[in-house]
Simulated assay, not measured.
Amino acid sequence: MKTTASTNINIKNKRASFDYEFIDTYTAGIVLTGTEIKSIRQGKASLVDTFCFFSRGELWVKNMHIAEYFYGSYNNHAARRDRKLLLTKKELRKLQRTSDEPGFTIVPTRLFINERGLAKVVIALAKGKKQYDKRQTLKEKEDRRMMDRMFKR
């Protein structure tokens, strides 16, 4: 029987949407050990400074921090180890072709647990924003806030 607390895990990489313009998104499975999934179910994970890279035709996520499990003893995992992502061959080929082009990268944007209790990562094919694009994003965000305030009154 699944608990509702484990399905409410939704860890986001808020910085990614500020630094990158998302072109396409994919939902990928992630290969974890037993203590890693337990830490994620407790919400002790972070996507800050994470990125994806290809190695021998496989997609890996680097710098994802999953805190050590408190009750893990000698079976505990390394907090920032590289973790393999699971996608179809067609998706992997498409991502590798596009990410090899200059200016494109693959960034994890969200980590969640699906209804079956499996950890999933939403990755985005992204293009880096310039400084003026970031300023424009901030301006649009501020304008939306002002409009919301005006209509709420």
Rank of each mutant, 00 (worst) to 15 (best):
F151W: 05
T50C: 15
A45L: 06
N10Q: 07
K89F: 14
T105G: 10
F18G: 10
E58L: 14
R135V: 12
D143R: 09
D82S: 11
H77S: 01
K134P: 11
A124N: 00
N63S: 15
Y74S: 15
P102K: 07
F22P: 02
I66Y: 03
Q131I: 14
K89C: 08
I113F: 00
D100S: 12
R81Q: 14
I23W: 05
F112S: 01
N76Y: 02
K129F: 08
Q131R: 15
L118Y: 06
E140T: 07
K38D: 05
I123E: 08
L118C: 05
Q136G: 10
L118A: 01
H77D: 00
S6W: 00
E140S: 15
S46V: 00
G128T: 14
R153E: 10
T25C: 13
N76T: 10
D148E: 15
V122K: 10
R110W: 03
N75A: 13
T35G: 00
K94H: 10
M64E: 00
M1K: 06
K141V: 02
G117M: 03
D82L: 09
R116S: 06
K152H: 11
E140W: 07
L138T: 14
R41Q: 12
R97C: 01
R93A: 13
R135T: 10
R153N: 12
T50P: 01
T50E: 01
M1F: 13
